[in-house]
Design a protein around this nucleic acid. Structure first.
Lengths: 342, 342
DNA sequence: GTCGGTAGAGTAAACGTTTACTCTTTGTGG
DNA sequence: CCACAAAGAGTAAACGTTTACTCTACCGAC
C-alpha cells in the first residue's frame, strides 16, 4: 500500500495541512522544528505525494507535452532531447507524442494531454494542423509554443531558425563554388520552413542574377522515399542542374541514393547540400555539406519559453524567436571552375 | 471552464452515477433510452471525463511507460513505435522515458511513472539497472515487461531476439564467405544481448573449428564513438582479422569510419556485419550486411504482453519470448576464395 | 393479494491532495 | 497591563470521478 499524506500526518502527530505546507516548501505557517521533523518522516517512509491527487486540485501537472510529426526523423529527436533536458532542469516532465503526420492521432494526443492537465505543449512543425485541432488548442487552457511553424494567433510563440537567410547562404555558397543551375528540394509546400527557405532561394537567385526556373523546384515530404521519387522524376525530365539545395538532410540522403542508382557521383557529377545537420550527416559518404540548425538549442528554448509562460513570469515581448544557422562545409559540393568571375 | 460529469448530469436531469455508468459502458443500471440521451448530451458538449479524477479513484491510468536507455539509437525508436502502436490499438497511451544511460534519471522516471498511476512499464535493455531502482520496480504495483534483457524475477516477462542463434548465423555466414579471422564487437559486456551473442560467436567458432582468440573480442557501448575507439585500438595492435561481427549497426558505422580513416576499404580489405538492421543500414555505403531483428514487432509484442498482464487476461505460460532474426545480405562482406573447401 | 426479484436510478463515501479560513498562543508596543 | 498582530497549526471544503449500497416501482408467480 502506498503511503499517503495522511499517514505522514498521523506519524508526525500533525494535520495534513501542515505536511502539505512542508512538502510544498511554503514559507509560512510551520516552525523550523516541525518542518525538519516532517521532512525526516517523509524521507524515512519515502513518501511521494500523489501527482494525480495534486493535479486534481491544482489543475497543474508539471508536465509539458511535445508534439512532433514524425519520430523517425532524427531532427525531431534532437529537438525532443533539448525540450526534455531544459524541462527537466526546471522540474517538468515531458510527454513525447508522435503525431505521425496523422490529423486523427494529433487530435487524440491533444485530448490526452488536456485530460491530464498538462500545463503546456510544444508543437513542432505542425503546419498541417487541422482547423478542428487548432480550435481545441485555443479553447484548452494549455499554453502553447510552436517550433518550425508560424501560427497566426496572438497567444502563440513561434520559434524558428532564420530559414530565409539560411537558404540564401546555401545558394550563395553554391554560387561561389561555380554552380549556376541549382535545384530546390523542398518539404511540403505548405510548410512554414519550406516556404521561408524557398523565399531565400528565390531571393538569392535574384540577387545573383540567376534566372529562376520553376522546373528546378520540387517538393517532397521531408523523408527519404518521396525525395527519391521526386528527384528521379526530375532526372527523367532531363533538366540540367549541377547542384541540389535540399530542405533537410533526409531528402539529401534520398538524393544520394538516386544518384547512385543512376551512376552519378556526388560531388563529381552533382553537388548536394542538406539542411539540419542531423547526426547522420557526417556519417554518410560523401560527408554531407549541410546548413546546421541549432536544433537542440531550439528545443531548449522552446521549453524555456513555454515554462516561463506557464509560470507567468514571461515578460517576453518578442513572440517570434529566430535562431541563426551555420553552414557545415563537408564533401558533397564540388568546387567548379567559375567562368563568371573576373 | 471545462465541462464536468456534474454538468452533464444536470443537463440530462439524472445523477452523476448514471452518467458515469453510461460513459464507462457499464451494461447494467440504465435504460437504453436514457443511455442514448446521455450520449447525445455528452457529445454535444464534448465532455471528456477527467483522466486525473478518474485515476484518483481507480488507481489506473490507461497509460504505459516505456523506458529506453538512449533515444538517439534508432533501434530503440523503432521499438518505441511498436510499443506505441500496439498500445494505442488497445486504448492505452505511452509515455516514452529516455533513461539516457543514467541511473539517476532512470530512477526518477520510475518515480514519475509510479506517481501517475501508470499501469505498467516496458523496460528496454536496462541491464545496468541499479539495485535501488530494481527494488522500486518490485515494490511498486506497476506491471513490468523487459525487452533485450533477462531479469531474474518470477514476475518478469522477458522479450528477446534469439541472440545466440543469430550471432552463430553471422559467424557461419562469414565462414562460408571464406573468413577465418573474425573479430567480435560487443556492446557492454554485462548486457544480456551481448552476452548471448558472444555465446553464439564462441559456439560457432567451436563448431567450425576456428580457434578462439580473445584478442579479437572487444566491447563497446552500442554507440558510434566508443566503437571507433575500440576498433582503433584493435588496429593499433596489428592483430589480423578479415571480418568484424558487430553487436549493433551503430558500432558497424563506427567501424566504417575508422577503416576509412586508415584507408581500409569495406569490404575489399575488411568485411563488416552489423546487428539490428536499423533504418540507416541500407542507406550507408557500402550497404551494411546485418542481422535483422524484428524490432517493431518486438515492441508490439511487449506492449501486448504488458497490457494482457494489466488487464489480468494474461494466461501466458511462457515468460521468455524469443523472436527470430534474419540476415540481410548486402554489400559489406567480401566473398573470399575459400581454401578450406574441398 | 402477497412476496420476491429485478431493472432503473439515486445517494454518498472515497480517492489524496491543496488551501481558504479559523483558532490558539505568543510576542510587542504603548 | 491591554490591545493587537503575527506565527504556528488545524478544520474542512473542494477537485471530478467511480462504485457500493439503497430505494422505488413494476412484474410475475403462487
Amino acid at each position: 500500500m502506498k503511503v499517503t499524506i495522511t499517514d505522514i500526518a498521523k506519524i508526525a502527530g500533525v494535520s495534513v495541512a501542515t505536511v502539505s505546507r512542508v512538502i510544498n516548501n511554503k514559507s509560512k505557517g510551520v516552525s523550523d522544528a516541525t518542518r525538519e521533523r516532517i521532512w525526516k518522516i517523509v524521507e524515512e517512509n519515502n513518501f511521494q505525494p500523489s501527482a494525480i491527487a495534486r493535479g486534481l486540485v491544482t489543475k497543474q501537472s508539471n508536465i509539458i507535452g511535445l508534439l512532433i510529426p514524425n519520430i523517425t526523423n532524427p531532427y525531431h529527436l534532437e529537438l525532443a532531447k533539448g525540450v526534455e533536458d531544459a524541462a527537466a532542469e526546471r522540474g517538468y516532465n515531458t510527454i513525447l507524442c508522435d503525431g505521425a503526420n496523422s490529423t486523427k492521432k494529433e487530435s487524440s494526443h491533444i485530448d490526452f494531454l488536456n485530460d491530464h492537465y498538462v500545463s503546456g505543449v510544444v508543437y513542432s512543425n505542425t503546419e498541417e494542423i487541422s482547423e478542428e485541432t487548432f480550435l481545441k488548442i485555443k479553447s484548452f487552457s494549455m499554453k502553447s509554443v510552436f517550433v518550425d511553424s508560424r501560427i497566426a494567433w496572438d497567444r502563440a510563440y513561434n520559434i524558428n531558425a532564420d530559414n530565409k537567410k539560411a537558404m540564401k547562404e546555401v545558394v550563395r555558397f553554391l554560387y561561389e563554388n561555380g554552380h549556376r543551375q541549382i535545384a530546390f528540394v523542398g518539404g511540403p509546400a505548405t510548410t512554414y520552413s519550406t516556404i521561408k527557405r524557398f523565399e531565400g532561394y528565390k531571393e538569392a537567385l535574384d540577387e545573383l542574377g540567376i534566372p529562376f526556373d520553376d522546373q528546378l523546384v520540387i517538393y517532397g515530404d521531408y523523408i527519404i522515399e518521396t525525395s527519391r521519387e521526386r528527384i528521379s522524376e526530375l532526372l527523367d525530365k532531363n533538366i540540367n542542374f549541377t547542384a541540389l539545395a535540399c530542405c533537410n538532410d533526409m531528402m539529401a540522403i534520398g538524393a544520394y541514393e538516386v544518384f547512385e542508382e543512376r551512376s552519378l557521383r556526388v560531388p563529381e557529377d552533382v553537388s548536394v547540400v542538406g539542411f539540419d545537420d542531423i547526426y547522420m550527416a557526417k556519417h554518410i559518404r560523401p560527408r554531407l555539406t549541410t546548413m546546421r540548425q541549432p536544433t537542440y538549442e531550439m528545443g531548449r528554448e522552446s521549453a524555456d519559453v513555454l515554462i516561463d509562460l506557464i509560470e507567468g513570469n514571461g515578460n517576453r515581448s518578442e513572440m517570434n524567436i529566430r535562431f541563426d544557422t551555420a553552414l557545415q562545409v563537408r564533401d558533397s559540393v564540388k568546387k567548379m571552375i567559375n567562368f563568371d568571375r573576373s
